[in-house]
Amino acid sequence: MVYKIDPQADRQYIEEFRRCPIGRHSPGLQRVLHIMRQDPSGNQVILFCRKPFEEWVLATMPPDRRDPIVYEDEPVFTSREEAEWEIFRRRWRLLTGESINLPFRD
């Protein structure tokens, strides 16, 4: 059985991830994250640390892993958690067609 994200039923996990993007997650959020980490196109948005513990940017791994990774110049994140939140938002939009218009933390 191939699992899919159900935007209505799985919406409850958005806030859980926003509160705690790194660490232990509920089984439901773990299922959603597992789905998000498998892009059928082969392109994968990833996190790249430019300066240890200081700067992170997003990048895209191409389907053919021999090709170069494409790095984004902006935005530059000053916390890993905020960068993880942006990846979550992008993957959610890709898989559900819905945008999450919430900042990392209020």
Rank of each mutant, 00 (worst) to 15 (best):
W92V: 05
S26K: 04
M36N: 05
L95N: 03
P75M: 05
C49F: 02
E15N: 14
R18G: 05
L58F: 01
F77D: 01
I14V: 12
P40T: 11
R18T: 03
E82N: 09
R24L: 14
G28F: 00
P40G: 05
P68V: 04
Y3N: 13
T96V: 06
R24P: 00
Y71C: 01
T60M: 12
M61Q: 15
N101F: 05
I100Q: 05
L95D: 03
E54C: 12
E98H: 07
D73F: 08
S41P: 04
V76D: 00
F53E: 15
V2Y: 09
Q44K: 13
P7C: 08
Q38F: 02
D73L: 14
L95S: 06
R31C: 09
K4H: 14
R11W: 13
N43G: 06
R105C: 09
D73H: 12
N101S: 11
N101Y: 08
N43R: 15
I22H: 09
S26C: 02
I69W: 00
T96G: 02
R90L: 15
G42V: 02
T60K: 09
R66Q: 12
I100V: 10
I22W: 04
W92Y: 08
E81K: 14
Q12H: 07
P68E: 11
V32I: 08
E16D: 06
F77S: 01
I35P: 07
R50M: 12
E84G: 05
F48E: 12
N43L: 15
R80E: 12
P52D: 04
E98S: 07
R31D: 00
P27K: 06
E81Q: 14
D10H: 07
E16M: 05
V2T: 09
A9N: 11
D67K: 15
P103N: 07
A59R: 04
P7N: 11
S41Y: 03
L47Y: 01
P40E: 10
P21I: 03
R50L: 11
P27Q: 06
H34D: 15
R80P: 00
C20D: 11
E86F: 07
L47G: 08
R66F: 10
H34F: 13
L58N: 00
H25Y: 03
L47V: 10
L94I: 10
V70C: 11
R37C: 13
Q38Y: 06
Y71S: 03
E86Y: 07
P62F: 06
P21G: 05
D64C: 10
R93K: 15
L102V: 03
R65G: 06
R31A: 09
P21L: 02
R89Y: 00
P7V: 09
P27Y: 07
R105Y: 09
M36R: 10
L47Q: 09
E55G: 04
S79F: 04
K4A: 11
R66W: 08
D39C: 10
P52S: 08
P40D: 06
G23P: 06
Q12Y: 07
G97D: 04
R37A: 15
T78S: 12
F77G: 02
I35D: 07
E82A: 14
V70R: 15
V57E: 03
S26N: 01
M1D: 11
E54W: 05
Q8W: 10
L29T: 00
A9E: 13
G42H: 04
R50N: 08
Q38L: 10
D10L: 04
F17M: 04
Q38N: 10
L94N: 08
W56P: 00
